[in-house]
Each structure stands twice: as C-alpha cells, then as structure tokens.
Design a protein around this nucleic acid. Structure first.
Lengths: 182, 182
DNA sequence: CTGTCCATGTAATTCGTTACATGATTCA
DNA sequence: TGAATCATGTAACGAATTACATGGACAG
C-alpha cells in the first residue's frame, strides 16, 4: 500500500486537489511511482475514510468546483511511522517485458530485438535529459548546504540518473553483442 | 500478459513441471520477472486452454504424481510472434517504495533512512555477487563465439549486473550526502 | 519428531489498468 | 469547430499477493 503513502507524502508539503496530485505526481514522485487519476481519486476516498486526510470543497467561477485535500495530524503521524518503518528486506520485484523478449531473442527475426532496444534507448535518453534538466534547475547549489528535505528529494533524482545511465551503457553493450546477427 | 510468455519461453528450451518452472524461474528469468507458484499454476491452466502448452501426467514412486508441460507448435508460434512484436513505447512503470521513503526522508528520525539504505545495499551486493558467479560459471567463453541463444541470455545477465552496480554507486552517494544528519 | 523437498492446487482480496462518462472554458 | 485544460468520478476487468490446504519421503 505505497500509493497511499506516496499521496500522504505529497500532501505533507501542501494541500492539493486530486487533479493537482495527479499532475505533481508525474513530475517528481511519479518517476518512481506512477498512478492514474482513477487510482488517485480512489485512494483519496480511502485515505479520508481512515481520517488521514480531510477535504474542503471550493467553488470556482468559470471552472468546475474542486476538493482541496490536506493531511491531518493522524495522517502525518502515520506517514512518519511508515517512513521510519523498515520493510525487512523485500527487494522490489522487477518486471520488465523487454528483458523476457531479450532472453528469448534468438526466436525473433534478427533485426527485431535491435529495433526494440533502440526504441527503448531513445526513451531512456530522453528521460535522462529530463532528470539532468531538473538537476540543473532545482539542485544546483552546494550539496552540503541543502536543507534536509531537498537533500532527500535530490537523492531520489540521483538514483534516477544513475539508473538511466546504466541502462544506456547496457544498450551500447547489447548493440555491440548482437550487431553481427542482424 | 507477460508471465504467460515468460513461461512459454522457459518451456521452449525443454518440458518441465509447474514445480520445476517455479524454481527455474527464480534463478534466471526470475531475476527480471518473478512469480509465485499459485500464479504459475493458474497461468499453466490458461495456457493449456489456449492450447499453447500440453501436459502429460507422470506417476512417481515415493513422490507425488506430477504433470509435465511442453510447449505446442501453436505455442511456439505465439511466442515467436510476441518476441518480435514491438511494444510501442511503454517504459515499464517503476515502483520502489524505498524511494518514496527516501523522498520524505526528513520526516523520519535521522538514522532510520540510513539503516534502510544499508540493508538494501547488502541485498544488492549479494545479488550482484550471484550474477557475477553465474557470469563466470556459464558465460566465460569468448563473447563473439557464443551461440545466439546464449548471447541473448548473457545480455539479460549483463543488464542485471549493470543495474546492481548502479544501485551500489547510488548507495555510496546517498550515505555521503546524509551522513552528517545522523 | 521436526523441518525441508516434492508437488499441486483453491479462495479471497487488493492493486492497477482500461473503458466509459460529464461539462464548462479557453485558445488556435 | 475542435483540441486542451480543469475537475471529478464509476464499472469492469486483469494481474498479483496472501492465506489456506494436503500429503508422503527422507534427513538431522
């Protein structure tokens, strides 16, 4: 039940509507935990039943009404508890269909895998560029003087960068190793 | 529906029982697509209904009876089709609870995150060692002279290695960046 | 005599995706 | 006139986890 806590984490910085949540999620926390709007709205209902968030309806001129959600005291308490909890070991299960394809790659016509790989490489490259941009724009200061909340957020960004770099390196290796088969 | 095809891929090399499948899965393909036995048995039923696999019951002395599954012609055809198909872009969604924890790390007592990170680091380190062992034992030959099926399997292993190395590198960075908070 | 290996499943539940649905406003 | 933004949901389905269940053989 991590989406619940991801939402709490985002709301802990400031109140938002479901709509805003969806959009702030895919631009920060969404890089490592994605969710559709349907899921978010459903979780918000669950969170409200658990009294970890509360909402207030706000009428707007020229725009649909909205519900602004804020975290409650018990929600913040729960979030803190969860962050500190040690999850005793479950490495997150990997699920990458491309790797299954690759594993059985000899069954496809020679060019097919190479094309799929190249496609992915482009996407990863773009994502890396996005991360690097964020790094330059939001985390350009002296690391040691960053405020703690920023340091932790910066760390998650670094993880994204290192992962994408590893991916690109792999794509190079892969291309080299199968090039003579195409 | 990738588990279906993961199973087909494993069966394409030789017939196996459900039990064997579960265990060969977590030692090769399981590094990038894990599944419990319940899921495997259920998928086998579905695969059989689709006529992509067939089974034969084998009685054993001193051991429970077993069902040996083999891939059918139409199953192999489907597998080949699937491997060659291009999945038009969906980068696999990442879901890592530890990163959410990290993102909100300032809410936990200072040592907590460091401990969680260290725990994970150990696990990754071990996994990397396993990968390296497999690399030495099964893929020590000249890369260019490997038979195609082995080359593709080797590639997936390399990906595992590069990812774990990236993870460890990140763990180092992380430790350095938050050490003064503890 | 307890635990692990072999071997197979059912059932309940939760989590996540896809499809469907509405409706005003603003910009090209 | 048609797409994008803001804003919220329900319903159906599929994928994955967790719990429950059985039973003989063999090793420590």
């Amino acid at each position: 039940v991590s989406l619940r806590h991801a939402i709490l984490a985002v709301l802990s910085s400031r109140p938002r509507t479901g709509y805003e949540l969806v959009h702030s999620i895919d631009g920060s926390i969404g890089f490592f935990w994605s969710a559709t709007h349907q899921q978010v709205y459903k979780e918000l209902q669950a969170l409200e039943k658990a009294q970890w968030v509360r909402h207030r309806e706000v009428a707007q001129a020229a725009k649909p009404d909205k519900k602004v959600f804020r975290i409650t005291d018990s929600g913040l308490k729960e979030l803190k508890r969860w962050v500190a909890e040690d999850d005793e070991g479950d490495a997150p299960p990997v699920r990458d269909a491309l790797l299954i394809r690759c594993w059985a790659g000899h069954l496809a016509p020679p060019g097919a895998l190479a094309r799929a790989l190249e496609q992915q490489r482009k996407k990863r490259q773009e994502r890396l560029a996005t991360y690097r941009l964020i790094e330059r724009e939001h985390f350009s200061g002296e690391r040691a003087r960053m405020a703690p909340p920023d340091r932790f957020k910066y760390l998650t960004l670094r993880r994204g960068i290192l992962i994408e770099e590893a991916w690109l390196k792999w794509a190079e290796e892969a291309k080299a190793l199968i090039s003579d088969l195409c």
